[in-house]
């Protein structure tokens, strides 16, 4: 079994991974980071979105062994202690969720998007969320949250 080394949420780690293990399974089953959700397992819903080397990816559509040497960020890595990440805070302010199942993926997608788009339009936000499905169809508040969160992230940087 290949042994891989990686960084998850700032902490270095290693794991023995079966060749066919998905990154989503490494995170959830091996590392017990269950904030990353598996919604469809067919690469469509985006609930499993995490960041690999700074880019948003669907962790159910990448092999764990492909993350060898990578820097991974999951939803658990966003908050600083008890202080929510600005995007998480914006989701709370706007109530950008209904059942909450898609929320980790939505937030991870939104953070990756907002890092490159500090002041997005509503249309840009909607297009950026094409890879993330909310079965409750609670999109309006999610979009509002991403617009607010992007601005908050930009002002936190400046």
């Amino acid at each position: 079994m290949p042994r891989i080394a990686f960084t998850v949420n700032g902490k270095a780690g290693t794991a023995e991974v079966p060749d066919n293990q998905l990154l989503s399974s490494l995170l959830r089953d091996t590392l017990r980071l269950t904030g990353t959700h598996i919604g469809c397992d067919t690469s469509q819903c985006g609930a499993c979105t995490v960041h690999v080397d700074g880019r948003s990816v669907k962790s159910c559509t990448m092999l764990a062994v492909q993350a060898d040497g990578a820097e991974i960020t999951t939803i658990e890595g966003l908050a600083n202690g008890d202080t929510l990440h600005p995007m998480q805070a914006a989701f709370r302010t706007h109530h950008g969720l209904q059942c909450g199942f898609c929320t980790p993926g939505m937030v991870m997608a939104a953070v990756a998007f907002a890092e490159k788009n500090p002041s997005p339009t509503e249309d840009e936000v909607r297009r950026s969320l094409e890879g993330n499905l909310c079965r409750c169809t609670g999109y309006q508040n999610i979009v509002d949250a991403v617009i607010t969160g992007a601005k908050a992230m930009a002002s936190a940087r400046s």
């Binding site: 690469s43 985006g46 880019r55 990816v57 997608a109 998007f113 950026s128 890879g131």
Partner: peptide, 9 residues
């Protein structure tokens, strides 16, 4: 193509 996450891979 696809969506942002698909385009990243």
């Amino acid at each position: 193509i696809g969506d942002p996450h698909v385009r990243n891979r």
